[in-house]
Write a protein that binds this DNA or RNA. Structure first.
Lengths: 220, 220
DNA sequence: TCACTGATCGACAATGTTGCTGGTCAATTG
DNA sequence: CAATTGACCAGCAACATTGTCGATCAGTGA
């Protein structure tokens, strides 16, 4: 009859990681609603009590999960935070960065959206490393001659990130297999680059809008 | 002592509306997580049993709420569906449409995001009237000479809608009063128009990206 | 007027979740 | 080696939520 469930070997750091990883997967699968301590602990094969030992409350767990996601994302998109300082703005390969971000978003659905939501709602988004880096590099880029003048880096960050994190919702729902999925990823990166280069409206066809833009501009 | 709670006068249609309206408000306040039948019924001052009479299950209620939101949004952005057919593509005022959409998104936070999420995840987004109209008009616009060539209407719809529905998360968290909020709305509409007209990257500074774009293009 | 439909309500069972507590046991440290 | 720490676990209490049922009672139509 035996069969007592084996007691987990004592390794707090690893346990914490296990729990966060489980929370992350659950987040990607069912969204925020699906992240209950019961479900997370079960998926991580950890006792609920143990989970509470590591994270005081559900809120704290979610908060920690978001940070964990942010870090994962940072590495996937910008590489190792340690070696970051050395690179130059001019050297940043916009096109490759977009590729990596789209890739990550597609592989980790849901969590990017949840992360963005939390970060934007927080009193100071730049507390978050990924946001700081993303928005910051966009701002630096905007100040170079490589960029069109008049870019609002904050708004552009929101637009870019919102788009890249929402597209997988559509893509994953409409792609039957891996192949179609990467095709849809390609479609997205193509379009975002095309948009960045050429916009959507033929400038000479819209003198009124152009005028409105320059007027808004004067107000700033 | 008396004080029996008055029984609601019999008016199923109005009751249904009341419930949906409550659900909608709750959605805007607390997101999907906040929409429990208990909370909705309470807010609507309706017995929970009554709510179940109108909506078989929580899922059904949420589904109905999303449709209701879609309809509200449609009217706010495109006007009355009945008088829609008459207008021409060329007559559509892009700039005014953007204004109305941003306005709506700011006034009704959360629900637009949830709506977009549901619609994109559904097997056939064009079942939804708002999506059909938005994406369709973008497609029609793309085929005119007013537009830059090569636009992917579906991707652009996602980018635009994701952006406009996410911006309020940032804006509402960082605006102290009504005035700051409308200023932030203005910032958004300005930037999205600017982006549509001029993009972000100086085309001549990025011959490699331009080449990649034309290559991708050839593959299609 | 009177039966009938169905909108509304109060209560109940089943289930799930949160957070807490007290107990066990492995590792560390003096 | 003994004592202490704290990681881990099982179970409890409080509460929320879902979905269901049977009992009313207001309109409606015969």
């Amino acid at each position: 009859m035996e069969a007592r469930t084996r007691r987990r070997v004592r390794d707090p750091a690893a346990t914490r990681e296990t729990i966060l990883d489980a929370a992350c997967n659950l987040l990607a699968k069912d969204g925020l609603e699906g992240v209950s301590l019961s479900a997370v602990a079960h998926l991580a094969s950890v006792n609920r009590g143990t989970a509470y030992q590591h994270f005081e409350t559900r809120e704290k767990l979610i908060e920690a999960t978001i940070e964990w996601v942010s870090d994962k994302m940072f590495r996937a998109v910008f590489g190792d935070p340690a070696t970051l300082g050395e690179r130059r703005v001019e050297e940043v390969d916009v096109s490759a960065l977009t590729d990596r971000l789209s890739e990550f978003a597609m592989e980790n659905p849901e969590i990017g959206r949840v992360w963005l939501q939390q970060v934007l709602a927080s009193p100071d988004p730049s507390q978050d490393a990924f946001w700081r880096e993303y928005c910051g590099s966009l701002r630096r880029f905007a100040s170079t001659s490589l960029a069109v003048p008049g870019i609002d880096a904050e708004v552009m960050s929101v637009i870019n990130l919102a788009g890249v994190f929402f597209w997988p919702v559509f893509a994953r729902a409409h792609a039957a297999d891996e192949g179609e999925r990467s095709e849809l990823t390609r479609r997205y990166t193509h379009e975002i680059l095309r948009l960045s280069m050429y916009g959507t409206m033929s400038a000479k066809a819209f003198p009124d809008v152009a005028e409105r833009l320059s007027k808004d501009f004067a107000k700033d």
